[in-house]
Each structure stands twice: as structure tokens, then as C-alpha cells.
Amino acid sequence: MKFKVTDSENISTVFLNGEIDMDIADDVREVIFPLIDSGKVVHLNLKDVQYMDSSGISVIVESSKRAKDKNTKVELKEVSQPVEKVLAMARKFL
């Protein structure tokens, strides 16, 4: 699966879309992790994500931890309503 990535100075924005599940999670990691490892601040734009399950949340958590280890950060941008609902549920747990 291909995701659009734009760069502006030290910020890379990854535009995720569709349904992020266990089957897609590794594709997402393959896009995000190299950006983090290169020291970029990563913005995840989630406005076009219609569905996200625990695998998608795991990618976000892993990305945040990886960014912290690399002294950079990951931020969520334009979170869609379905993803916001899942994040709200996940926040009770994480």
C-alpha cells in the first residue's frame, strides 16, 4: 500500500488513508520508521482513515516511543471521527 509523504524543513507528513488493520500495519511501519530514524519530526495526517483497530494504535504507540528514543516526535494531525473514537477508547488503556 502506498501513502503520500510530504516534506517541509524537518517535518515529514504521512497521509494515511483507508482502513488500518493488522494486514496494513507493517506497510505503515515501513513508511514511518525510516523517517523517525532519520531524525525527522513526523506528522501523521489521519483525516482519510475510515477505520483503525488495535494494530493501528500499536503503530502509533511504537512510533511515538521510537521517536522519543531518537529525540524527535510524532504528532497526530486532522484525526477523522472514526479514529478519534478508537483513540478515546485506547486512552483509557494506554
Binding site: 488495535s54 488503556f93 494506554l94
Partner: peptide, 20 residues
């Protein structure tokens, strides 16, 4: 079972969602 709340790993989140 889902894991303890103070464990920061995401594993077990799916089971937590089902329970919620």
C-alpha cells in the same frame, strides 16, 4: 486478559476493546 494498565506496551489492547 488485557495487560496491566501501567504497562506501556500496546499488546492486549484488542482484548480491552472487546471488553469495553
Amino acid at each position: 486478559k488485557h495487560r496491566a494498565i501501567d504497562d506501556v506496551k500496546p499488546g492486549g489492547l484488542g482484548t480491552f476493546f472487546i471488553q469495553e
